[in-house]
Design a protein around this nucleic acid. Sequence first.
DNA 1: TGGTTTTATCGTAATATTGCAATATTATAT
DNA 2: ATATAATATTGCAATATTACGATAAAACCA
Lengths: 109, 109
Amino acid sequence: MGATKTHMFTISQNSLAAAAKVLAHPARIAILQYISRQDQCICNDLVDVTGLAQPTISQHLNAIKNVGLLKGNFEGKNLCYCLNQEKWEELQELFQSFFGKINQNCCYP
Amino acid sequence: MGATKTHMFTISQNSLAAAAKVLAHPARIAILQYISRQDQCICNDLVDVTGLAQPTISQHLNAIKNVGLLKGNFEGKNLCYCLNQEKWEELQELFQSFFGKINQNCCYP
DNA sequence: TGGTTTTATCGTAATATTGCAATATTATAT
DNA sequence: ATATAATATTGCAATATTACGATAAAACCA
């Protein structure tokens, strides 16, 4: 009990849900927006930008990284990373394909 | 501690996150897809379709309903509802505007 | 080397989500 | 009215998420 029953759904349904999960927190939205504006990003800035503690930011960044949405060098003192264009486009296509199919079928009676 | 600090983010960031949360579970994806295919929907079918228990479905439906994405009559024995077109389009626009702005700014160095 | 800065990890508390059995409610049919 | 069918609500257990203090690790600089 309690855990999501992923095995009861299709891969595509689970993929979209996983992608949506990344966007399902305002901090991660803010982080993605910030990264896109910066060309690169330093985690410490994000603490100021979001008002969350550094370990919390690190955790959110990790969630974004784990789905492959970040690319760059993660070692060293100052990180330097940006959006992984390929993955980012994949994510958009997931949503767009979902929206498209729903729109196509929907009747709105 | 523990709860999302929504007050630290913009309304627009919170809105998108809330919308994404609805899509952040495969059962709700499956439910939305099913509803769009059916023109109407009876909750009992969803138990078969998803393999989840009836109270669980009811809960997921409620989550979708709570953001205004469903429209129809919710009283009576057999429900009859469908997607709320207006809200559904709003949700898509939220995502598209987010994607659009990110794409516009992003450098992908 | 020692100190500083930046990010990661660990541990833990608070809260949220998911799922379901039991039960209640609502509408319909007989 | 009573039985039946469909959905909602309640209560609770299991799990996941969010957040942060403390601390570690890595890179840099004097």
